[in-house]
Design a protein around this nucleic acid. Structure first.
Lengths: 130, 130
DNA sequence: CAACTGTACTATGGCGGTTAGTACAGTTAT
DNA sequence: ATAACTGTACTAACCGCCATAGTACAGTTG
């Protein structure tokens, strides 16, 4: 299930969107699967319908879901591909941070180890990108 | 020189603090070097004295500078070491992002290449952690 | 028709960042 | 001592983003 960290600096609506992206990538939400309704999810997450709607809008913008009034919101065909494409920006982030670490004199091997450990144990639950 | 990206999501005062940390690591600001005065820097960066002061407070908190009324602010002995120590949090960031990429099915090799390229070309100027 | 769906809109409150202005205290040079 | 600098503290105001609340409308489904 998608969970919300009330104390995270990343907005709730982004946490929701990111959470569903993760579920799509895991196969928990296959193409064509129906999303919970805006109102329903807002109850489940103990948040506001508007916040959920904003999350869905974000997912739509990312090409992950498409919605229709009266019908519902569904995982788009090719959603996983679209998400993967969006992940490229994360690679740019990683590169930027690595440059900082390089400048700071942190040995490259240590940073590579971070990557290795992340890939060795990708299932572990983390606290979002702080 | 420290530069400000007005459109970045990272606060100006953090950009200033990060910028000086970078200069310390580069050797542009050696131990004992005097920082520009709060008012002077606020003019140079076309920002507010309060914002600069907040940046200096942050640098003090990080153990990078120490200030004295009437005298000025100076790079602390061991500043570079303190900065390097603080960099550990960036490694946690990298690990978290790498986990996302792992989950997304991005090949580990591609991410490792990001790190490698960052270390091969650490001098290139980037736009901060977006 | 009733019950659901997404969507739109306004209003409100809170928080953080920034700007603005003023003021005070300590140091340094003249 | 005076003037000109230094850091520091404080209040007030503004803005933008996020979240909440409530209402309303339109489309679909049973």
């Amino acid at each position: 299930m998608v969970t919300i960290d009330k104390f995270s600096r990343t907005p709730v609506y982004e946490q929701i969107a990111d959470g569903f992206c993760r579920e799509v990538l895991c196969g928990l939400m296959p193409e064509g699967a129906q999303m919970p309704s805006v109102r329903e999810l807002s109850v489940l997450l103990a948040t506001n319908p508007n916040t959920v709607q904003k999350a869905y809008l974000e997912l739509d913008r990312r090409g992950v879901i498409s919605s229709a009034p009266g019908v519902g919101s569904f995982i788009r065909p090719g959603a996983a591909e679209a998400i993967r494409e969006g992940m490229r920006s994360l690679m740019r982030e990683i590169t930027a941070i690595a440059r900082e670490l390089a400048l700071a004199g942190i040995p490259e091997e240590e940073v590579q180890d971070c990557i290795r450990s992340a890939y060795r144990d990708p299932a572990s639950i983390q606290t979002e990108k702080e």
